[in-house]
Design a protein around this nucleic acid. Structure first.
Lengths: 156, 156
DNA sequence: ATAATTCTTGCATATTTATGCATTCTTTAT
DNA sequence: ATAAAGAATGCATAAATATGCAAGAATTAT
Protein backbone atom coordinates (compact mmCIF):
# COMPACT_ATOMS: atom_id res chain seq x y z
CA UNK A 1 0.00 0.00 0.00
CA UNK A 2 1.29 3.44 -0.82
CA UNK A 3 -0.37 5.53 1.78
CA UNK A 4 -1.03 4.29 5.26
CA UNK A 5 -1.98 7.42 7.10
CA UNK A 6 -2.80 8.16 10.69
CA UNK A 7 -4.88 4.98 10.98
CA UNK A 8 -7.52 7.14 12.55
CA UNK A 9 -10.22 5.26 14.35
CA UNK A 10 -12.64 3.58 12.01
CA UNK A 11 -15.50 3.75 14.46
CA UNK A 12 -14.91 7.46 14.87
CA UNK A 13 -15.19 7.80 11.11
CA UNK A 14 -18.40 5.81 11.20
CA UNK A 15 -19.80 8.11 13.82
CA UNK A 16 -18.85 11.10 11.71
CA UNK A 17 -20.56 9.58 8.70
CA UNK A 18 -23.81 9.13 10.59
CA UNK A 19 -23.56 12.71 11.73
CA UNK A 20 -22.99 13.95 8.19
CA UNK A 21 -25.85 12.06 6.57
CA UNK A 22 -28.11 13.24 9.35
CA UNK A 23 -27.16 16.85 8.78
CA UNK A 24 -27.52 17.16 5.04
CA UNK A 25 -28.59 15.22 1.98
CA UNK A 26 -25.79 12.98 0.73
CA UNK A 27 -26.53 11.50 -2.64
CA UNK A 28 -23.33 9.69 -3.54
CA UNK A 29 -20.33 8.18 -1.88
CA UNK A 30 -18.26 10.81 -3.61
CA UNK A 31 -20.15 13.53 -1.75
CA UNK A 32 -19.55 11.70 1.46
CA UNK A 33 -15.85 11.41 0.70
CA UNK A 34 -15.71 15.16 0.20
CA UNK A 35 -17.68 15.90 3.34
CA UNK A 36 -15.28 13.78 5.33
CA UNK A 37 -12.31 15.48 3.76
CA UNK A 38 -13.66 18.84 4.85
CA UNK A 39 -13.69 17.49 8.37
CA UNK A 40 -10.15 16.32 8.07
CA UNK A 41 -10.72 12.68 7.32
CA UNK A 42 -9.27 11.41 4.08
CA UNK A 43 -10.30 8.03 2.69
CA UNK A 44 -11.18 6.70 -0.73
CA UNK A 45 -14.57 5.85 -2.11
CA UNK A 46 -13.89 2.15 -1.71
CA UNK A 47 -13.48 2.57 2.00
CA UNK A 48 -16.68 4.56 2.16
CA UNK A 49 -18.48 1.77 0.37
CA UNK A 50 -17.30 -0.66 3.03
CA UNK A 51 -18.21 1.74 5.80
CA UNK A 52 -21.72 2.08 4.49
CA UNK A 53 -22.18 -1.66 4.54
CA UNK A 54 -20.81 -1.92 8.05
CA UNK A 55 -22.73 0.86 9.73
CA UNK A 56 -25.09 0.10 7.92
CA UNK A 57 -26.53 2.96 5.95
CA UNK A 58 -29.48 2.64 3.61
CA UNK A 59 -30.02 4.50 0.39
CA UNK A 60 -33.54 5.41 -0.47
CA UNK A 61 -35.62 8.16 -1.92
CA UNK A 62 -36.87 10.91 0.35
CA UNK A 63 -38.12 14.43 -0.15
CA UNK A 64 -34.52 15.37 -0.76
CA UNK A 65 -34.13 12.85 -3.52
CA UNK A 66 -32.19 9.62 -3.31
CA UNK A 67 -29.97 9.93 -0.27
CA UNK A 68 -28.11 7.84 2.27
CA UNK A 69 -29.46 7.67 5.76
CA UNK A 70 -29.11 5.80 8.99
CA UNK A 71 -32.11 4.48 10.78
CA UNK A 72 -30.58 3.63 14.05
CA UNK A 73 -29.90 0.31 15.72
CA UNK A 74 -33.45 -0.88 15.20
CA UNK A 75 -32.75 -0.99 11.51
CA UNK A 76 -29.33 -2.47 11.95
CA UNK A 77 -30.99 -5.75 11.33
CA UNK A 78 -27.96 -7.96 11.16
CA UNK A 79 -26.74 -6.71 14.49
CA UNK A 80 -30.15 -6.63 16.04
CA UNK A 81 -31.04 -10.20 15.14
CA UNK A 82 -27.64 -11.48 16.14
CA UNK A 83 -27.97 -9.81 19.51
CA UNK A 84 -31.49 -11.05 20.05
CA UNK A 85 -30.39 -14.56 19.28
CA UNK A 86 -27.28 -14.41 21.41
CA UNK A 87 -29.06 -12.82 24.32
CA UNK A 88 -32.19 -14.87 24.40
CA UNK A 89 -31.90 -18.16 22.59
CA UNK A 90 -31.07 -21.18 24.68
CA UNK A 91 -31.25 -23.84 22.02
CA UNK A 92 -32.05 -24.33 18.39
CA UNK A 93 -33.32 -27.38 16.58
CA UNK A 94 -34.59 -28.19 13.16
CA UNK A 95 -37.24 -30.58 11.96
CA UNK A 96 -38.14 -30.58 8.30
CA UNK A 97 -39.27 -27.07 7.43
CA UNK A 98 -39.34 -25.90 11.01
CA UNK A 99 -36.69 -24.38 13.20
CA UNK A 100 -37.54 -24.33 16.88
CA UNK A 101 -35.87 -21.83 19.15
CA UNK A 102 -36.10 -22.16 22.89
CA UNK A 103 -35.75 -18.99 24.91
CA UNK A 104 -36.03 -17.96 28.49
CA UNK A 105 -39.59 -17.38 29.75
CA UNK A 106 -41.30 -14.45 28.05
CA UNK A 107 -38.43 -13.87 25.65
CA UNK A 108 -39.94 -15.49 22.59
CA UNK A 109 -41.83 -12.44 21.32
CA UNK A 110 -38.89 -10.05 20.99
CA UNK A 111 -36.86 -12.73 19.24
CA UNK A 112 -39.72 -13.26 16.80
CA UNK A 113 -39.90 -9.55 16.12
CA UNK A 114 -36.20 -9.45 15.34
CA UNK A 115 -36.66 -12.39 13.01
CA UNK A 116 -39.62 -10.76 11.31
CA UNK A 117 -37.62 -7.61 10.73
CA UNK A 118 -34.84 -9.42 8.97
CA UNK A 119 -35.28 -10.54 5.39
CA UNK A 120 -34.17 -14.14 5.21
CA UNK A 121 -34.69 -15.98 1.97
CA UNK A 122 -35.93 -19.32 3.22
CA UNK A 123 -38.10 -17.83 5.94
CA UNK A 124 -41.84 -17.99 5.52
CA UNK A 125 -42.86 -16.60 8.87
CA UNK A 126 -42.57 -16.91 12.62
CA UNK A 127 -44.86 -17.69 15.51
CA UNK A 128 -43.94 -16.98 19.09
CA UNK A 129 -45.26 -18.46 22.30
CA UNK A 130 -43.84 -17.67 25.68
CA UNK A 131 -40.52 -19.45 25.54
CA UNK A 132 -40.62 -20.97 22.08
CA UNK A 133 -40.27 -19.47 18.64
CA UNK A 134 -41.25 -21.44 15.61
CA UNK A 135 -39.65 -20.31 12.38
CA UNK A 136 -41.29 -21.77 9.31
CA UNK A 137 -39.22 -22.27 6.16
CA UNK A 138 -40.62 -22.58 2.68
CA UNK A 139 -39.58 -26.20 2.39
CA UNK A 140 -37.73 -28.87 4.30
CA UNK A 141 -34.63 -28.20 2.24
CA UNK A 142 -34.81 -24.53 2.96
CA UNK A 143 -35.34 -25.42 6.59
CA UNK A 144 -31.76 -26.63 6.51
CA UNK A 145 -30.53 -23.40 4.97
CA UNK A 146 -32.46 -21.37 7.48
CA UNK A 147 -31.08 -23.40 10.33
CA UNK A 148 -27.55 -22.84 9.03
CA UNK A 149 -28.11 -19.10 8.66
CA UNK A 150 -29.49 -18.73 12.16
CA UNK A 151 -26.84 -20.91 13.67
CA UNK A 152 -24.18 -18.81 12.04
CA UNK A 153 -25.77 -15.63 13.27
CA UNK A 154 -26.03 -17.12 16.73
CA UNK A 155 -22.33 -17.83 16.62
CA UNK A 156 -22.53 -21.32 18.07
CA UNK B 1 -39.40 3.99 -28.48
CA UNK B 2 -39.03 0.68 -30.21
CA UNK B 3 -40.90 -1.67 -27.98
CA UNK B 4 -44.04 -0.72 -26.11
CA UNK B 5 -45.34 -3.96 -24.69
CA UNK B 6 -48.44 -4.93 -22.77
CA UNK B 7 -48.37 -1.71 -20.80
CA UNK B 8 -49.23 -3.74 -17.75
CA UNK B 9 -50.20 -1.77 -14.71
CA UNK B 10 -47.25 -0.08 -13.09
CA UNK B 11 -48.78 -0.13 -9.64
CA UNK B 12 -49.39 -3.83 -9.97
CA UNK B 13 -45.74 -4.25 -10.81
CA UNK B 14 -44.83 -2.20 -7.78
CA UNK B 15 -46.94 -4.39 -5.58
CA UNK B 16 -45.27 -7.44 -7.05
CA UNK B 17 -41.86 -5.96 -6.37
CA UNK B 18 -42.68 -5.37 -2.71
CA UNK B 19 -43.89 -8.93 -2.47
CA UNK B 20 -40.73 -10.27 -4.06
CA UNK B 21 -38.30 -8.36 -1.88
CA UNK B 22 -40.29 -9.42 1.17
CA UNK B 23 -40.09 -13.05 0.15
CA UNK B 24 -36.42 -13.46 -0.63
CA UNK B 25 -33.17 -11.57 -0.58
CA UNK B 26 -32.78 -9.45 -3.69
CA UNK B 27 -29.29 -8.07 -4.05
CA UNK B 28 -29.36 -6.36 -7.41
CA UNK B 29 -31.81 -4.84 -9.82
CA UNK B 30 -30.82 -7.56 -12.23
CA UNK B 31 -32.08 -10.18 -9.81
CA UNK B 32 -35.30 -8.29 -9.45
CA UNK B 33 -35.67 -8.08 -13.20
CA UNK B 34 -35.31 -11.84 -13.40
CA UNK B 35 -37.72 -12.47 -10.55
CA UNK B 36 -40.30 -10.33 -12.32
CA UNK B 37 -39.70 -12.13 -15.58
CA UNK B 38 -40.39 -15.44 -13.87
CA UNK B 39 -43.73 -14.00 -12.84
CA UNK B 40 -44.46 -12.91 -16.35
CA UNK B 41 -43.51 -9.27 -16.11
CA UNK B 42 -40.81 -8.11 -18.48
CA UNK B 43 -39.14 -4.76 -18.00
CA UNK B 44 -35.60 -3.48 -18.23
CA UNK B 45 -33.22 -2.60 -15.44
CA UNK B 46 -33.76 1.09 -16.06
CA UNK B 47 -37.43 0.76 -15.32
CA UNK B 48 -36.66 -1.18 -12.16
CA UNK B 49 -34.38 1.59 -11.07
CA UNK B 50 -37.24 4.06 -11.44
CA UNK B 51 -39.66 1.73 -9.69
CA UNK B 52 -37.33 1.41 -6.73
CA UNK B 53 -37.18 5.18 -6.38
CA UNK B 54 -40.94 5.50 -6.64
CA UNK B 55 -42.01 2.80 -4.24
CA UNK B 56 -39.55 3.56 -2.54
CA UNK B 57 -37.28 0.67 -1.70
CA UNK B 58 -34.13 0.99 0.37
CA UNK B 59 -30.96 -0.98 -0.03
CA UNK B 60 -29.05 -1.89 3.07
CA UNK B 61 -27.06 -4.67 4.60
CA UNK B 62 -28.74 -7.47 6.51
CA UNK B 63 -27.82 -11.00 7.48
CA UNK B 64 -28.52 -11.99 3.93
CA UNK B 65 -26.06 -9.44 2.60
CA UNK B 66 -26.86 -6.17 0.95
CA UNK B 67 -30.48 -6.39 -0.12
CA UNK B 68 -33.41 -4.24 -1.13
CA UNK B 69 -36.34 -3.91 1.23
CA UNK B 70 -39.48 -1.95 1.77
CA UNK B 71 -40.26 -0.10 4.96
CA UNK B 72 -43.80 0.81 4.10
CA UNK B 73 -45.49 4.19 4.42
CA UNK B 74 -45.05 6.16 7.60
CA UNK B 75 -46.90 4.49 10.43
CA UNK B 76 -50.26 5.99 9.75
CA UNK B 77 -52.94 7.09 12.13
CA UNK B 78 -56.56 6.07 11.70
CA UNK B 79 -56.46 4.96 8.13
CA UNK B 80 -59.57 3.70 6.52
CA UNK B 81 -59.60 -0.05 6.17
CA UNK B 82 -59.52 0.13 2.42
CA UNK B 83 -56.57 2.41 2.50
CA UNK B 84 -54.71 0.34 5.06
CA UNK B 85 -55.27 -2.74 2.97
CA UNK B 86 -54.24 -1.10 -0.26
CA UNK B 87 -51.17 0.52 1.18
CA UNK B 88 -49.83 -2.28 3.26
CA UNK B 89 -51.15 -5.68 2.28
CA UNK B 90 -48.99 -7.67 -0.06
CA UNK B 91 -51.01 -10.85 -0.22
CA UNK B 92 -54.09 -12.47 1.23
CA UNK B 93 -54.91 -16.12 1.69
CA UNK B 94 -57.60 -18.12 3.36
CA UNK B 95 -57.58 -21.42 5.14
CA UNK B 96 -60.76 -22.59 6.79
CA UNK B 97 -61.79 -19.95 9.29
CA UNK B 98 -58.58 -17.99 8.95
CA UNK B 99 -57.53 -15.24 6.59
CA UNK B 100 -53.82 -14.52 6.54
CA UNK B 101 -52.62 -11.13 5.39
CA UNK B 102 -48.98 -10.53 4.60
CA UNK B 103 -47.72 -6.97 4.94
CA UNK B 104 -44.42 -5.18 4.72
CA UNK B 105 -42.22 -5.35 7.83
CA UNK B 106 -43.77 -3.63 10.81
CA UNK B 107 -47.01 -2.90 9.03
CA UNK B 108 -49.13 -5.65 10.51
CA UNK B 109 -50.20 -3.75 13.61
CA UNK B 110 -51.79 -0.72 11.91
CA UNK B 111 -53.65 -3.02 9.53
CA UNK B 112 -54.97 -4.99 12.47
CA UNK B 113 -56.09 -1.78 14.15
CA UNK B 114 -57.97 -0.76 11.03
CA UNK B 115 -59.61 -4.18 10.92
CA UNK B 116 -60.57 -4.03 14.57
CA UNK B 117 -62.19 -0.67 14.06
CA UNK B 118 -64.31 -1.88 11.19
CA UNK B 119 -67.44 -3.92 11.92
CA UNK B 120 -67.38 -6.98 9.72
CA UNK B 121 -70.04 -9.61 10.26
CA UNK B 122 -68.03 -12.80 9.99
CA UNK B 123 -65.04 -11.40 11.85
CA UNK B 124 -64.28 -12.76 15.26
CA UNK B 125 -61.00 -11.03 15.90
CA UNK B 126 -57.50 -10.32 14.68
CA UNK B 127 -53.95 -11.07 15.77
CA UNK B 128 -50.96 -9.19 14.40
CA UNK B 129 -47.32 -10.10 14.26
CA UNK B 130 -44.78 -7.94 12.57
CA UNK B 131 -45.61 -8.65 8.96
CA UNK B 132 -48.53 -11.02 9.30
CA UNK B 133 -52.12 -10.43 10.33
CA UNK B 134 -54.40 -13.31 11.19
CA UNK B 135 -58.10 -12.59 10.91
CA UNK B 136 -60.28 -15.17 12.59
CA UNK B 137 -63.78 -15.79 11.28
CA UNK B 138 -66.62 -17.33 13.25
CA UNK B 139 -66.63 -20.44 11.11
CA UNK B 140 -64.97 -21.94 8.07
CA UNK B 141 -67.90 -20.91 5.93
CA UNK B 142 -67.75 -17.40 7.22
CA UNK B 143 -64.03 -17.49 6.54
CA UNK B 144 -64.96 -17.55 2.88
CA UNK B 145 -67.29 -14.60 3.27
CA UNK B 146 -64.69 -12.68 5.18
CA UNK B 147 -62.09 -13.40 2.56
CA UNK B 148 -64.42 -12.15 -0.16
CA UNK B 149 -65.21 -9.01 1.81
CA UNK B 150 -61.59 -8.15 2.40
CA UNK B 151 -60.62 -8.94 -1.12
CA UNK B 152 -63.30 -6.60 -2.37
CA UNK B 153 -62.16 -3.88 -0.03
CA UNK B 154 -58.63 -4.42 -1.20
CA UNK B 155 -59.85 -3.86 -4.71
CA UNK B 156 -58.16 -6.86 -6.28
C1' DA C 1 -62.10 13.55 -34.23
C1' DT C 2 -57.87 15.87 -33.76
C1' DA C 3 -54.50 17.95 -31.36
C1' DA C 4 -51.97 18.74 -27.27
C1' DT C 5 -50.25 16.96 -23.11
C1' DT C 6 -48.80 13.63 -19.96
C1' DC C 7 -47.12 9.19 -18.68
C1' DT C 8 -44.18 5.11 -19.38
C1' DT C 9 -40.58 2.73 -20.90
C1' DG C 10 -36.60 0.98 -23.83
C1' DC C 11 -32.10 2.00 -25.13
C1' DA C 12 -27.56 3.57 -24.62
C1' DT C 13 -24.45 5.37 -21.63
C1' DA C 14 -22.51 8.19 -17.83
C1' DT C 15 -22.26 7.79 -13.11
C1' DT C 16 -21.83 5.41 -9.05
C1' DT C 17 -20.80 1.44 -6.21
C1' DA C 18 -18.60 -2.95 -4.88
C1' DT C 19 -14.63 -5.79 -4.71
C1' DG C 20 -10.09 -8.62 -5.73
C1' DC C 21 -5.57 -7.90 -4.83
C1' DA C 22 -1.55 -6.03 -2.64
C1' DT C 23 0.42 -3.56 1.15
C1' DT C 24 0.96 -1.79 5.74
C1' DC C 25 -0.15 -1.73 10.42
C1' DT C 26 -1.88 -4.31 14.56
C1' DT C 27 -2.64 -8.12 17.41
C1' DT C 28 -1.92 -12.74 18.96
C1' DA C 29 0.60 -16.92 19.38
C1' DT C 30 5.00 -19.56 19.86
C1' DA D 1 11.62 -11.52 19.89
C1' DT D 2 9.88 -13.51 15.93
C1' DA D 3 6.47 -15.44 13.41
C1' DA D 4 1.79 -15.91 12.17
C1' DA D 5 -2.71 -14.27 11.69
C1' DG D 6 -5.92 -10.51 11.24
C1' DA D 7 -7.62 -5.84 10.08
C1' DA D 8 -7.83 -1.73 7.39
C1' DT D 9 -7.30 0.60 3.27
C1' DG D 10 -5.63 2.25 -1.38
C1' DC D 11 -5.77 1.16 -6.11
C1' DA D 12 -7.71 -0.40 -10.24
C1' DT D 13 -11.52 -2.22 -12.25
C1' DA D 14 -15.69 -5.02 -12.65
C1' DA D 15 -20.39 -4.67 -11.54
C1' DA D 16 -24.41 -2.24 -10.76
C1' DT D 17 -27.28 1.85 -10.96
C1' DA D 18 -29.27 6.19 -12.64
C1' DT D 19 -30.62 9.03 -16.35
C1' DG D 20 -31.01 11.88 -20.95
C1' DC D 21 -33.33 11.12 -24.86
C1' DA D 22 -36.77 9.46 -28.08
C1' DA D 23 -40.98 7.40 -29.01
C1' DG D 24 -45.31 4.71 -28.15
C1' DA D 25 -49.55 4.80 -25.50
C1' DA D 26 -53.00 6.94 -22.69
C1' DT D 27 -55.44 10.94 -21.26
C1' DT D 28 -57.27 15.49 -21.63
C1' DA D 29 -58.51 19.52 -24.03
C1' DT D 30 -60.38 21.90 -28.14
Amino acid sequence: MINQPSRADKSERHRLIKEIVASKPIRTQGELTTALLVRGVQVTQGTISRDIAEIPLAKTRTLSGIVYHWQGPAQGQAESLARALRDSVLSMEQSENLVVLKTGPGMAAPVAVALDETPLGPKLGTIAGDDTVLVVAKSAGEGGELFALLRESLGR
